[in-house]
Design a protein around this nucleic acid. Sequence first.
RNA 1: GCGCCUGUAGCUCAGUCGGAUAGAGCAACGGACUUCUAAUCCGUGGGCCGGAGGUUCGAAUCCUCCCAGGCGCGCCA
Length: 557
Amino acid sequence: MLAEHVGQVVAEWIGEKGWKDVPAFGLERPADDAHGDYATNFCMQLARIAKAAPRGLAEELRERLLSTPTLQPYLDAVEVAGPGFVNFRLSRTAFVEAAGGLLAVGEEVGRGTRSQPLHINLEYVSVNPNGPLHVGHGRYAAYGNALHRLLAFSGHQVTAEFYINDFGRQMEMFGLSVAARYAQSFGLDLPVPEEGYQGAYVGDVAASIRAEVGDTWLAVLRERGLDDPDDETLLYFKREGYRRMLELMKEELRSFRVEFDVWFSETQLHEGGKVQGAINELLSRGVAYVEEDAIWLRTTDYGDDKDRVLIRSNERPTYFAADIAYHEDKLARGYDHLINIWGADHHGYVPRMKAAVGLLCGEPDRLEVIIGQLVNLLEDGETRQMSTRRGEMVTLQELIDAIGVDAARFFLVMRSHDQTLDLDIGLAKRQSQENPVYYVQYAHARIASILRNVPKDLRPDVIDESAVFTTAYERDLIKTLDEFGSVVTDAADRRAPHRIVGYAQDLAARFHTFYKHCRVIGSEPAVASSRLALCLVTKIVIARCLNLLGVAAPEKM
RNA sequence: GCGCCUGUAGCUCAGUCGGAUAGAGCAACGGACUUCUAAUCCGUGGGCCGGAGGUUCGAAUCCUCCCAGGCGCGCCA
């Protein structure tokens, strides 16, 4: 509420002095209340450019602020402190106006308005549809979906996309594995291939096919076995297995409150000629070339270590080639910006993909790759390794069944995506009651409870009267609420939804403290109504935070 | 060997485009319910911010080197 006004005065000051390349002006919340409601270190940063002592500059700024008439109603005191800090103490009027402003905005508190909103394509999760989602995928799902909500709320237009890796050898092996389990369910001894998928869920998929078509394919499998992957029977199992796994995956994600706008099939990219088309175009433009019977892309033009193969000498396209066609397709659909969320095990792939985008459109930075660190799984302190192929994994569903969607999402998104996450599944199950999500949700439920008990004649209005907002509890709450908008923008720009978690915990803590010390119902009318206004705004902001994280905001607990 | 990420309280982690006395949760200990939900609040203890140099009025934050851990360096996906 104050930063803009002070910023204007500062800008005029700088203009008069003719200083160049000055740092950005900002206010911060001091850790110590003795340093006021807000403080700035601007004069110390300015000292080098202005070639003057920080404290002298601070004194000068203080004089200017105190002689600016429009600021007077908002400031009780401006002090110069320490090596050159300027500390601000706000007036009651400032708090009343801030609270009134927030109440007037209502449900839309914190929504960003961008002068240049971007149409962003956000791709995440994107796994082979040949096994259930494990908790590692769950982390990217929780992170990506929270980022989706956050970017949208901060003022961008976002399309969420899932790239289905349904092409190639992994899917073939999966199809063969399903066929083998199908045959085995009739007593036919057809072993799952060495490199096939051993998990029990493969048997479930086979059983589901059997339930639909009975022994239709049994005789053919007995006769021909699994040796020719292009056999139409085996293609059938690949297709049907794929279809069922994809449905399962969609259901799991939906139950985890993760929704995608576009499901994009890699196979259709190949069958629609898009891969070949992209390569032809790159060849004709001379950025791809033939050498040693293979086709290569000049990714070194954009700083990659070496050029990369698009078509192998055996004439099969690489995964990279398909990915190029995919990104060309995304670019052609008109997005300003592409964001991919990848696991840390793919980070070596980033330079070539950015180079490819550079070769496609001339702007490698239209692609932004966010690398999410991995989840380190433990069970009661012991490391637990995961393998989709061997069917050894902790599934996302298992975590959800154990601790619920809210606690799982909160836990998976509360730490920076840049940090490897230790998840002890045994500990998580035992400690689910201590999940901090309940602390935040409880604040919301408490407010809902107050609202249920509000007498009819009490209305949420901020009344300009000397009795209101006299406590530090109320003022802390207002300051925190007032910061929500900048927290949203900051978290979105940094791709850091975990900052929303931190903010929500902080806001909930300030509310709980306020609740303990500041009675709402039963206080004298002016005080009660002003406090009710704070409750209403707090409820809106907490609900918004939880919504951005994909977590429910309960009315009762 | 090279590249990316990480190293902060007993545990899990915030804080990292330099700011005032480094924070939270959990765990430990001690208090607070006749009043809007005690899933809460108030308090106590707990730290060579991996190590060493450097830049700066000021470094957990920036630079260099070292140590430790994770991940990656394919005509795999």
